[in-house]
Design a protein around this nucleic acid. Sequence first.
DNA 1: ATATTTATTAACCATTTGGTTAAATTTACT
DNA 2: AGTAAATTTAACCAAATGGTTAATAAATAT
Lengths: 201, 201
Amino acid sequence: MIHTDTEKAILQAAKTVFYKKGLAAARMQEIADEANINKAMLHYYFRSKEKLFGAVFLQAFGELAPFLNSIFNSDKPVFEKIREFVDGYITFVVDNPYLPTFIIQEMNINPQFGETFFRNHVTPDPSKFEEQIAREIEHGNIRPIDPKQLVLNLISLTAFPFVGKGLVIGILDLDEIAFKTLMEERKKLIPEMIINTIKVQ
Amino acid sequence: MIHTDTEKAILQAAKTVFYKKGLAAARMQEIADEANINKAMLHYYFRSKEKLFGAVFLQAFGELAPFLNSIFNSDKPVFEKIREFVDGYITFVVDNPYLPTFIIQEMNINPQFGETFFRNHVTPDPSKFEEQIAREIEHGNIRPIDPKQLVLNLISLTAFPFVGKGLVIGILDLDEIAFKTLMEERKKLIPEMIINTIKVQ
DNA sequence: ATATTTATTAACCATTTGGTTAAATTTACT
DNA sequence: AGTAAATTTAACCAAATGGTTAATAAATAT
């Protein structure tokens, strides 16, 4: 796994272009230009467009999955994990705005690719967190809820505004600043909402 | 606005292909094959790929926007609107699984297209609903919350699982049936959760 | 220094793709 | 029926695109 400067430059450029345009709309020449190198180098290092895309996709997950798993799998209490997830995710995505959309987009366009990927790589895995939730419910520490639904609520509330940003801005009539303000507020709002739903009165 | 059979067949085929693959990955020949007609007909009726795409996009919004607006703008109470939105949306999307993803995807890839579109067409508009929420808060009937955040929560919880379906299935380790079951459960779960957050104790 | 491997480039290639055209067929009109 | 208009088709075209190649330059090893 040697990474020469050129290889790194290619990956960085490919990331930029693929994130913004997706696999189909991205052009090899555009990636080469972005990396300031000859187009043939892309094939020299990555063989094909699909392979290059695969490398970018892998790296995208490589940035996100360990981060999410470190939260899911820590030994902290449920409420704290919820707060960490929301705050961490929003902070992360504000700095990497194209990443979640990119992942979701390509997994939808090519579901088979997504399935294979999940089978063969380290991906976000909340199963331990789900077990923890189930345990807390059994102990009567939080109100009954399907752990999968809880995790889905958490991800939905946190990720959707970024994934559907264009639509959200249009529907709620926001500008860039108002959007960012709203997202910052959500760091508090989402955990409060979820915790309020599951905490025993 | 005459629609011959051929024109209808083209639109239907274009819908199928564009929904599944997006603008960039869709092929004019594939649309022609899907419609069982000659490729030249696509240009005869719609001039260019972009124009055809525009027509499909317009129709997509035309299906969704009035439906959502009829809920947002009715004279029913807030809680009921929340229930109607969730139930209606999920029912709708189960029958039209590609539609929301399609809209969000293309608005993200080409934000300018999205902006122009929102300025020139009938789109989902929750502003009246937001005012209604603000009024209910003033009257002390529901707990204080930014109406935009409430609407965003509603849309996020309802739409995200479909938009990010590939990822959700992967992360939560679901199959098609488990996914559908989860979605059906959400028709109850989401309204309960949101209403629980805003109802005065 | 010289040979050998590695990296880089410019030119090239085959295929695909959106789009056109001119002829043929069907429909509508008188 | 005869004619003009609209519809449909097959063949074609230019541009774009992913990918290759052969020659060159740079680095590495002997």
